[in-house]
Amino acid sequence: MECPNTFDDILLVEDNPGDVRLTKEMLKETNLDPTVHVVADGAEALKFLNQKGEYFDAPWPDVIFLDLHLSRMDGEEVLAEMEEEMREIPIIAISGSQQGAALKLDDLEDEVDACLEKPIQPDEFEELARSL
């Protein structure tokens, strides 16, 4: 499967180690070779984007994968706290298939560039990457 390498740096905001592993494996299947920066909660995501603390030299990501269900500061709160310039980065909201996830994704459709349910499928991501 070929996908244009449009993403050199990806910020993955995900608190589940299994989902982090699956997302990285999915990216390999699409032949993308990005650097994946992983933070486990929304507060860390904002520190990364603002280059604060340990993230003082963090790169500006080409895309953000934002889990909506995080233990500390969830995805909706992150979106509310993001500064205007951060909104220029494509944001892909991701959520598990638990009850209500699809409704939550529908509610955020206007605030993000795309919404995906976990587990993310390589074909689905390849199509999305081409559109972004």
Rank of each mutant, 00 (worst) to 15 (best):
residue 109 E to D: 12
residue 69 H to Y: 14
residue 63 V to Y: 05
residue 103 L to Q: 14
residue 127 E to H: 12
residue 19 D to I: 04
residue 95 S to E: 04
residue 131 S to T: 11
residue 26 M to F: 05
residue 112 V to A: 02
residue 32 L to D: 00
residue 66 L to I: 08
residue 52 K to R: 15
residue 129 A to V: 15
residue 108 L to E: 06
residue 81 E to Y: 03
residue 31 N to P: 00
residue 70 L to P: 02
residue 83 E to D: 10
residue 28 K to D: 09
residue 80 A to Q: 13
residue 14 E to Q: 11
residue 85 E to I: 00
residue 114 A to H: 10
residue 126 E to T: 15
residue 21 R to D: 09
residue 94 I to M: 15
residue 16 N to A: 11
residue 120 I to G: 02
residue 72 R to T: 13
residue 108 L to T: 05
residue 50 N to W: 04
residue 119 P to Y: 07
residue 53 G to P: 07
residue 95 S to R: 06
residue 2 E to N: 14
residue 30 T to W: 01
residue 84 E to N: 07
residue 2 E to V: 11
residue 15 D to K: 06
residue 64 I to T: 04
residue 8 D to S: 11
residue 99 Q to D: 12
residue 28 K to H: 10
residue 14 E to I: 08
residue 48 F to W: 09
residue 60 W to T: 15
residue 47 K to N: 12
residue 42 G to H: 02
residue 55 Y to R: 05
residue 17 P to G: 05
residue 130 R to Q: 12
residue 108 L to I: 14
residue 34 P to Q: 03
residue 121 Q to F: 09
residue 76 E to Q: 14
residue 88 E to P: 00
residue 74 D to P: 04
residue 60 W to I: 14
residue 99 Q to M: 13
residue 98 Q to W: 12
residue 44 E to D: 13
residue 56 F to E: 15
residue 67 D to N: 10
residue 53 G to H: 10
residue 126 E to H: 13
residue 76 E to R: 15
residue 95 S to N: 06
residue 35 T to R: 14
residue 32 L to F: 03
residue 120 I to E: 00
residue 130 R to A: 11
residue 63 V to A: 08
residue 66 L to E: 06
residue 59 P to C: 02
residue 41 D to G: 05
residue 107 D to W: 07
residue 130 R to T: 08
residue 37 H to D: 02
residue 47 K to T: 04
residue 38 V to A: 03
residue 24 K to E: 12
residue 7 F to T: 03
residue 109 E to W: 07
residue 56 F to R: 15
residue 113 D to C: 00
residue 100 G to R: 02
residue 109 E to G: 00
residue 29 E to Y: 11
residue 132 L to S: 04
residue 13 V to Y: 02
residue 108 L to N: 03
residue 76 E to W: 02
residue 85 E to Q: 11
residue 36 V to S: 01
residue 104 K to G: 01
residue 85 E to P: 03
residue 115 C to W: 04
residue 106 D to F: 12
residue 44 E to Y: 00
residue 46 L to I: 12
residue 128 L to Y: 08
residue 4 P to C: 04
residue 31 N to Y: 12
residue 61 P to L: 09
residue 48 F to I: 03
residue 111 E to F: 12
residue 26 M to H: 01
residue 43 A to I: 14
residue 119 P to S: 08
residue 108 L to F: 08
residue 24 K to T: 10
residue 16 N to Q: 10
residue 107 D to P: 00
residue 21 R to Q: 13
residue 33 D to E: 14
residue 23 T to E: 00
residue 26 M to Q: 03
residue 11 L to I: 07
